[in-house]
Amino acid sequence: MKYYEAVEGFLKHLESIDRSYETIKGYRKELGYFGRFLEGKYSYEKDVGDITIEDLEDYMYYLKKSGKMSATRSRVVYIFRSFYNYLNKRELCSKNLAMFLEPIRVKQTERIYLSEEEFILLTGKIDKPIVKVAVQTIFYTGLRVSETVNLTLDNVDLDEKIIYVIGGKGNKDRVIPICEKLYNILIDYIDNIRPLVDSNKFFCTKKTGKLSPQYINVILHKAKDSLKWQKNVSAHILRHSFASNLIIHNAPLPSVQKLLGHSDLRVTSRYIHQDLEQLKKAVKLL
């Protein structure tokens, strides 16, 4: 079976077991990159059974030389293993070649986050009202940017002060309470900012009837630059900030886990920040 035909079968399989749209989109992109790498190497499309462990290793080396971060390369290994597990079970290849790939060691770095004071400074530099409310929603709920732009009017219950996330990462649903600060912002948005358009998207522009993740990040980058900040700021950093600020204020880790939609508590624990002064105080206790 040709490589791209096998990839399409794998993606249909992911859809049949209810993997999320974003997951399938990401797998399609990464496996597409690998397919183009093979075409560049051999000048033709290989049968999936003829791909060798050397092909996989050459691709991983190519990613490293291209400057891809360890987290990105680790994700590629995970995708290869899932893809080859599918192929092996259907006897489309003799063995799961991806199991012979060395795992990529991902260095855990301190996560960047914004305090609420920094966030207020940042939003003061955003002159696009719809985007401003969208980023405020991310900061006060921890929503992923994809979840934010996909919210519909039915997903946001202002009477009950609840946001319903339908089909989040891993195709999981969750419920997020709306805090009082965000509630007032969203009421004003519905009454005075949201354009009258034929769209069920909660965040929408008059021109397109929707808002894109890319546009949100462009506006955030411009706002950050206007403040002359060196730190990176993106929609994902705002999600980090939500989690970090909750934990700083002693929110229970399992509650933060549920709000973020993490399946593993160890992932949530990465949001625990300790500055140098806190570490010095801890050492003095010995």
Rank of each mutant, 00 (worst) to 15 (best):
T141F: 00
E147G: 07
T148V: 04
N150M: 09
L153V: 11
L158R: 11
E160P: 01
I162V: 15
I166M: 01
G167Y: 05
K169A: 04
K172G: 02
K172E: 02
K172P: 00
D173L: 08
D173G: 07
V175S: 02
V175N: 01
V175H: 04
I176L: 10
P177R: 13
I178N: 02
C179R: 14
Y183S: 08
L186V: 15
I187Y: 04
I187W: 06
I193N: 03
R194L: 09
P195R: 02
S199L: 12
K201A: 11
F202D: 02
F203E: 01
T205D: 06
T205A: 11
T205V: 10
G209T: 08
L211I: 14
P213F: 09
P213I: 14
Y215I: 07
Y215F: 14
Y215D: 01
I216M: 02
I219C: 00
I219K: 03
L220R: 03
A223S: 01
A223H: 11
K224F: 10
S226P: 08
Q230A: 08
K231V: 05
K231N: 01
V233G: 08
A235T: 01
A235Q: 08
I237W: 08
S241E: 03
S241R: 12
S241K: 09
L246R: 09
L246C: 13
I248M: 14
H249F: 06
N250T: 12
A251I: 13
L253V: 15
P254S: 06
P254A: 12
L259V: 01
L260Y: 11
H262S: 07
H262G: 09
S263Y: 09
S263E: 13
L265S: 10
R266Y: 10
V267S: 12
S269Q: 15
R270E: 10
I272Q: 03
H273Q: 10
Q274N: 12
Q278H: 07
